[in-house]
Write a protein that binds this DNA or RNA. Sequence first.
RNA 1: GCGCCCGUAGCUCAGCUGGAUAGAGUGUCCGCCUCCGAAGCGGAAGGUCACAGGUUCAAAUCCUGUCGGGCGUACCA
Length: 564
Amino acid sequence: MQQFIDSIEAAIQEATGLEAGSFKLEKPRNAAMGDFAFPCFLLAKRDKGNPAKIAGELAAKLNENFDGIEAIATGPYLNFKVRRTDLAKAILGDILGQGASFGNSKQGEGKTVVIDLSSPNIAKPMSVGHLRSTVIGAAIQRLHDKLGYKTVGINHIGDWGSQFGKLVAAVDRWGDTVDLEKDPIPSLLKLYVRYHEEEEGDPELQEAAREAFRELESGKDGHVRGIWRNLTELSMKEFDRTYARLNVTFDEVRGESYYEDHLDATVDRIVAAGVTEESQGALIVNLEQFGEHVPPCLLRKTDGTTLYATRDMAAVFHRHELYNFDRCLYVVGGDQRLHFQQLKHVLDRMDIDWESRVEHIDFGMLRLPEGKMSTRQGKVVFLEDVLDRAVEEARKIIDEKNPDLESAGEIAEMVGVGAVVFNDLKRERTKDIEFVWSEVLSFEGDTGPYVQYTHARLASILRKAEPGAMENADYACLEESSALLLTMGNFPAVLQRAATKAEPSEVTQYLLALAREVNSWIAANRVLGQEAPTTAARLQVVAAARQTINIGLGVLGVGAPDSM
RNA sequence: GCGCCCGUAGCUCAGCUGGAUAGAGUGUCCGCCUCCGAAGCGGAAGGUCACAGGUUCAAAUCCUGUCGGGCGUACCA
């Protein structure tokens, strides 16, 4: 499809003297007007003329040299219509010829993107909130993979910090009251909550927790570290189960604890850059130059221990040394905007030239109808429960509508999990989401299962077609199908925009629109049993649409079943 | 208090870097399984794009202010 855009743009440049890149073709208001549009306001301004008149004159001029493309002036717009058979042939040829690599690009060749995603905290259950970072981050990684970047997905596990002192002390004291092996996460959560409550009036507990974290930080490999290591392993085993269901893998799993040894060097490096100062007994980087309200970044507390920010500084230096990234994306909730701003400001003050390559890919918070989620108040929805219920629901629908379906269990898993993941990727990243069960468990309309269902229908038609039925197509019968063809042809551009903006919802929204078009096209265009050249042409549309949906769902990490 | 983000149909959301008559889904109402999958398709109703100014040939989109909501605001992560 790109070839049409290129030749139209080239012709406009030649006829008007506009420079390449100074204008962009748009999509006409409705498909009947044409395939591509060029608003003439820009020219009208330059030449102080009437845009409608300019459009008319330009149309006449361009049509002299066009072959297979027609320029039509409609008011101040200049619309272009490609010869239908050429359009169909080019787009279907592209998609079917490229197969699974349709949408691939070389734009990322030789470039590296580091993505920090998921990053749950040890000993806490994954809530639907963690789903967002995991699923958004994984989609962004796959998008970049598709565009030829080298990608490194990093799961930066929260396994360090003063709360682990409490946890270790709690396990030490009351570990035998729960079954850690069988039910690790809920048990740990219970212990943590109990410790939190009881230490209020018990200085001894407070001191025990502090002591435990001190020992942990000292690096001594003894009793405390043993407990901590065990907690970590138990939690990771649980997390891995969920990741497997979500179809997410990581290139690097590193706890914050990994940076223990890097902390002193990191602080030294920032001090050496001359940007630190002492304030109220703590070591800080003053950031007032970025705005009088920007609070300083704390590197060392009064007691000498480090903070989250220190560990993140260590991590970003480490990642840069290791990967020399072109983009370093942090897929972390919007509640941490200030933290990442500070991180970037510190890099900026240190005159680090790759500062602009570090991006906080923030996303909206997930709220329950009754308010903000809170683990301690029991106001959480656990991810496993959501997945289980969605799968259960999918199974119920399959039993009802398609009781003979083979491997119904696997497909129910694909559809249920797909519904949850798709739903999470549906809205613009930064928007807050209210978690409503009925919405997550809905399989109709703007949902993942709707797209999956469309895929299954297309696959079903292809299964029923005779071998070789796609040969000798008569593209003339696709006269009325050009809107759908253009949508499919636009897929590579959608992927590129989604990657640049780190915005998976561009893909979900695209797939919903495509599925909608496909479904009404199927209703209006009988494929099988037509005259052979007609069936052949329509089968190509079916195959191309199936292929495009399949790739799109793949990027999102949602399964594309051939039947469901 | 201050900073950042958000406000589009009853509800959930699209609307790309300003461009043609603001679009989907859901819910409500009506129609379609003797024809490739009804998790579907077609149709109806539903909008002062929070409000008020401004910039522009052109504003849901950019700027300012007001109101409403969310998040954050130095020794948690």
